[in-house]
Amino acid sequence: MNWTHKIHHTALTLLSAGLLAVSGWGASASPAQAAAAPAPACGSGDQGLLQELQAKLSSTQSAPPSFNDLQFLSADTGRAAGNGFMIGTSDGGCHFQEIYKGQWNFRQMDFPDNVKGWALASVQDGSAVYLITTSDGGSTWKRLSDKAVTFERIDFTDRMHGFGYNRTSTYYTADGGLSWSKISTPANTSGAEFSSRSNGWAVVTAPGSGYRIMKTTDGGSTWKLSLKSAFDYPESGRIYAKGDQVYALLYGGSGMSQTSYSLYASGNKGNSWRRVIAEDSAGGGPAPGSGAEPLKTGPASGKPGNMQLIGNSTAFLFGFSPAGEKVAVGRTYNSGKQWSNQPAIPGVDGMISFTGSKAGWMAMKGVNSSSLYATEDGGTTWKLKLTFKGTE
């Protein structure tokens, strides 16, 4: 499972747990209803929900519940979804509730606000991926088309506008996903990212000519060089951009549960770059690219996962080591000038959703479990919120 999904961090008005109980996700309540709801005590976050949901799902599928994606809109309000289910919290994980249970196996979800959302999902264990949408916070979903999509990830900036990506192509919608137009990207693009319809980035790789990071400010009509190297071109790449920050995550070879990679950072919209991490591996060979001597290992000394960019200077990178059975985050508070890898916890895969420089969440897959963790100190320590456990 590729966990290199990008997740939004929109600041929203929080729903109270009492409001959730009265109105459900995506609904509204009167001030009298909200005021009447008592403030619940913070418990384990389970209250029997996971056991009940696991029992329901076990009757329709053989695999135990497993988190495939999570998205938090604030430190308190967010969702986590997987094979046939979606759960949510509005009080920082003190309580969770079942939002959805059904046929959809969520690959990635994207909520620009707490009501309207989209997801890439398959029907149970099917291989075809569909673009589906919800207008009630995730309780009910409908396909936007009977045809499967080729998107590997989606990114909606609001209720009408968004982008769909696969490794080589980028698409844009201005009508909530009903129709899509292809955006022109350079030849040999192996990863792109648009922060707006006008501004975008592309990783261009070609055997024998190294790699290039290209930038457009006119919606793909023209592309200009931002970074290049003639050495060890990557297999593919992923760009993350927010405000003045831009990060290029370049993937090298993979083997023996290892992936070589390099991370480049820019704090001035790509006008200059620094190589932050260059991790070689026995199974994946040398890290792609060139540059000054950076850190030799990333978080968990393993594979790179997804990144989260906060404001103009803070960024987090998730790292996981399947063989070492550990996961962790690395972070910077100054656009990559200094980088620190935080302590690891047990796990084999996962992803992160940070909503600020300190507050964040992690969906972690273990050898025989799938768990949600929260941090209040930028990933230095993690608190377990809930766990699905499989059968031994």
Rank of each mutant, 00 (worst) to 15 (best):
M307N: 07
A328N: 12
K358G: 13
L317E: 12
Q342P: 01
P304Q: 07
V327C: 01
I310G: 11
Q338A: 07
G366I: 12
M351R: 09
A344H: 06
F318N: 00
Q338N: 15
G298D: 01
Q342L: 05
G356R: 08
Q308G: 12
A359M: 15
M307A: 05
W361P: 05
N312E: 06
I345D: 06
S371F: 01
Q338K: 12
N306E: 08
P343M: 07
G305E: 02
G356K: 06
T355W: 08
S370K: 08
G360L: 14
L309S: 07
G319F: 05
T297M: 10
Q308I: 11
P322D: 11
G330A: 10
F354C: 11
S340W: 10
S370N: 10
G336D: 05
D349E: 14
P346V: 01
G319P: 11
S301L: 07
S313Y: 11
L317H: 04
G347W: 00
A363M: 04
S370W: 01
A323F: 07
A363F: 03
N341G: 01
G311S: 04
W339H: 01
R331N: 06
K326W: 01
G347E: 03
N341V: 04
K337I: 08
G305P: 02
W339L: 00
I352D: 04
P304G: 08
G305I: 03
G360T: 12
T355R: 13
S340T: 15
K365M: 13
Y333K: 03
M351G: 13
A328V: 13
L317V: 04
N312V: 07
D349V: 08
K358V: 13
G347D: 03
I352M: 11
G360V: 13
S335W: 10
P343K: 04
G302Y: 06
G350H: 08
D349F: 13
F354M: 14
K365D: 14
S357F: 05
G319D: 00
T332Q: 07
G298Q: 02
R331G: 00
T314C: 02
Q342N: 11
G360F: 10
E325G: 02
A359H: 15
V327I: 05
T314A: 05
N306L: 08
D349W: 08
A359C: 11
F318G: 00
N312K: 12
P304D: 09
G350I: 09
S321E: 00
G330D: 02
T297C: 02
S369E: 02
S340L: 14
V327G: 01
I310C: 04
T314K: 12
F320R: 03
S313V: 10
S301C: 09
G356W: 09
I310H: 05
P299H: 03
R331K: 14
F320K: 07
W339Y: 12
R331F: 00
K365Y: 15
Q342T: 04
S335R: 14
A300T: 03
F316S: 00
V348D: 10
N334E: 09
A315F: 11
N368K: 15
E325H: 05
L317Q: 12
K303W: 05
F316G: 00
G298Y: 00
N334L: 11
N368A: 15
G366C: 12
E325I: 01
K303H: 02
F320Q: 09
S371N: 07
F320H: 12
S353D: 14
G347Q: 05
G347A: 10
N334Q: 09
S340C: 05
I345G: 07
I352P: 08
I345N: 06
G298K: 03
N306D: 13
G324P: 02
Q342C: 03
Q308K: 14
S369K: 14
